[in-house]
Nucleic acid binder design. Structure first.
Lengths: 189, 189, 189, 189
DNA sequence: ACGTAATCGAGACGGTACGTCGTGTCTTACA
DNA sequence: TGTAAGACACGACGTACCGTCTCGATTACGT
């Protein structure tokens, strides 16, 4: 089988990116440093990625499953707890935090991130939630988008602003609160 | 009255920072550019701010009320809708977005931001919520921290990741959902 | 008869060299540019020429007669005027100037240039001069090498340093002066 | 006396230029190398010189007397032998050869070189020659420009094309031949 | 009111990284 | 088989800012 050189090189560069990121952090991430670490010329990096941001995005996508599966036989709560734990894990790594920092300061990358990562998970989540609510007989008038924001938003918030990694207890309580809001209430407000 | 030059200079610099930020965006914000805009030597900037990040933080604090008042005579919902609208406004400006970008990528600044801005609002919010719930006879077993994250988190999330400015309708529904979760439910799950 | 591709290719490359040289000048002459212009891979150029300099030398030799004939039936003056006019023409083209620039900065090429071009003309000139002087009965004690330098040197000098192309009048006067020096003088100094 | 820092730096850079030139030759002369040798940032070099060529020109002018004096009490021959020996010396150094290589390939620099160096010597030479001829009663119809080219041209020619440094014997004969051409001849051409 | 400090603008400076270009070598795929 | 196309490591380019550092000129105060 013929093994072209090119893909091997791209992989080397992505691995070097992660390695440098883990070693020195995002603020010290330089193209020259990555090139040196990968044993590659700078031009080779620029051949495949227009900016450092795109490179980090690809590195992120390489190591991150873009979909985290739901289990229809399990409860809403358990499913979302798992989802949010996974989310918290992914974005608490140096790579994940760097990814977020780039997204926050660069609209172009955030679009690419949305397409390649966020919308996939979001769609899975929405689909699961709809099915599960129907199955559990919840007919509440709920805006699924807002529900998902109430689940995901606080995780991102804690990581981005408070620099904390939400633990299981936080996640569990959060999911409880959100679910409480969609169960039939005795009285209106 | 004698007016020393110093305070006037600091003000000029902060104003120049905002002006450059509005003109060219955070990614193009340079100390040299600010100094030129302010008609000031670079050293004068370094005299008072150790890094560009600290400078932006001060600029942000200068133009932003660090507390946004609650009205105890109004409803929980109305109060939080106002709070979140104000939050969305503040962080949808170029200055606000820049502030967030810095916070996300710099732990040191995020601490300072927490002290000077975030904790003040957070404490006010928590205090108000406790009073209001008591007044309205809600005794639900709720974790106030999580409740506040459910309110604020989605706003930051929308701004930071989705690059959207939440509108009043979104905010209103969000507050509704959160409040729904703390009203007494007919049945636990 | 079978016509191999190779000679055709070399020609294409030499022509492309001249074409690029005329288009953008020596300072912008690149192997990549020549390869593109010739519709040829870079490796094909490197197969036949070790450096850009050798390539330009070959291009120069291709378009330049390495010998310019003397006419024994004409006068010394007329012969040298023609020689110098031809010289001035050859080295006033972009190709000729480039050739000189390379010679000046590269000893290796200047040797090759000497062998393939300069010594041939020099020998012809010396032989002609000797014959003609004998024929015209001039027996002056002259160093022919120096005489030739006095003829050729000023032409190169004007072209290389002054960036001028000597005109016919200049050449004519120059030859007159040189010849005046070898005619029998009334008195030594 | 106040010694500003600036000129000291320029001098350091010019010295480093010469040092690198002597060490590795013109083809290996890089701005980065000069900056390193001088212990200076690249930007400092670019602040004062637009191109490497201008830098070499300045280095050349720094070490070269821009005028080499004539002695009106000495003979024409001796004066020009001294002039040409000096010329041959100056342009046989690495620095001198590099200067010439740059002049040959760059019209802009050759203009600057003409203004700062060449025209000064040329004018001195012409003035001296005129005075001396008058003093010695030579009234020949001579074109001084061509005479000077016959003196200087061969020197440059030998250095640039033949890569030789003309020795005293060559120079002496050359001057003899040129002078022979301006002495009254017995017969016209 | 004036001389003496302190303060400031201007910008030079040594660095670091940028993104680009051309080199000369090497690989691949096609003709 | 030979060759175009072009990937590749390398090295230098010229630029932009960084944070530090003089240097005068311009304050503003203490006498």
């Amino acid at each position: 089988m013929i093994q072209t050189k090119q893909p091997r090189n791209k992989e080397k560069i992505l691995e070097a990116t992660i390695s440098v990121l883990n070693g020195t952090g995002y603020l010290c991430l330089t193209i020259e440093g990555i090139a040196a670490e990968a044993g590659v010329g700078k031009a080779t990096i620029y051949r495949w990625w227009p900016t450092k941001s795109h490179l980090v995005l690809d590195a992120f996508l390489m190591v991150t499953e873009s979909a985290f599966p739901f289990d229809l036989n399990d409860s809403i709560k358990n499913n979302f707890v798992e989802q949010l734990k996974n989310l918290a894990d992914v974005f608490s790594t140096t790579l994940g935090r760097s990814m977020l920092a780039i997204i926050v300061e660069d609209k172009g990358i955030s679009d690419a991130f949305y397409t390649s990562y966020l919308s996939l998970r979001r769609n899975d989540s929405a689909a699961f939630l709809r099915q599960a609510m129907e199955r559990e007989g919840i007919e509440a008038e709920v805006n699924i988008d807002i529900l998902l924001d109430m689940l995901f938003g606080p995780i991102y918030f804690r990581i981005l602003i408070y620099k904390q990694t939400p633990d299981e207890r936080f996640i569990s309580e959060l999911v409880d609160h959100v679910i409480a809001g969609i169960l039939p209430a005795c009285s209106g407000k």
